[in-house]
């Protein structure tokens, strides 16, 4: 499965690149990622929330890198769901913004794992990546992921539909947090 998405961010290509190149930033805006930990200059360890409350983990390496322009990575060894991604940072015509073009490729296996992954992505797999990039834009342009009363937990918004009503959270809801 190949997913593509793009957005334009009112920051320079070098700033957007630098934020993405620090892979540990990715979980701040990518809904499915729990954590990315740098294990070397070009290697990293990723964990993602999977269906049934399980986490999936894999190692990845950067295989293609042009600072300020392009970044490519792929999973290594025997990842449950082999995957790869590239992101290109292209100056927008306005002279101050950057177009971010993302391609993610998942090699979805057969059997139970494949079915679970397919179910996880749902009928509109690209929607999640679109929303991921919207949050990346929010973080880089405004400082953080925007929350509302209906969607108070930032990157979980998609999973929250139908949402809680647009009224303030109770103390109990706030205490339970995103895992409520």
């Amino acid at each position: 499965m190949e997913l593509t998405a793009t957005t334009t961010i009112r920051r320079s290509a070098s700033e957007v690149y630098a934020f993405w190149r620090d892979l540990e930033n990715l979980p701040t805006f990518m809904a499915h990622l729990e954590q990315v930990r740098s294990t070397g200059d070009r290697t990293s360890h990723w964990s993602a929330a999977a269906p049934f409350g399980k986490n999936v983990e894999w190692d990845a390496e950067i295989i293609d890198e042009t600072p300020g322009e392009k970044l490519g990575w792929r999973s290594t060894a025997n990842a449950d769901v082999p995957n790869a991604g590239t992101v290109r940072f292209v100056p927008a015509p306005d002279g101050e913004s950057t177009e971010v073009h993302v391609v993610l490729v998942y090699d979805i296996p057969g059997g139970a794992v494949g079915k679970a992954v397919a179910k996880y992505f749902g009928e509109e797999p690209h929607q999640q990546l679109d929303d991921d990039l919207r949050r990346l834009k929010q973080v880089l342009e405004t400082g953080e992921v925007v929350r509302s009363d209906g969607a108070p937990w930032g990157k979980r918004a998609l999973k929250e539909f139908p949402q809680r009503p647009a009224q303030p959270l109770s103390d109990a809801e706030l205490e339970k947090g995103a895992d409520a």
């Binding site: 929607q127 342009e141 929350r147 969607a151 998609l158």
Partner: peptide, 11 residues
């Protein structure tokens, strides 16, 4: 472009 957490529906 940034203040609607439900931008996906609006889109």
């Amino acid at each position: 472009e940034n203040t609607n957490p439900n931008a996906g529906i609006a889109e």
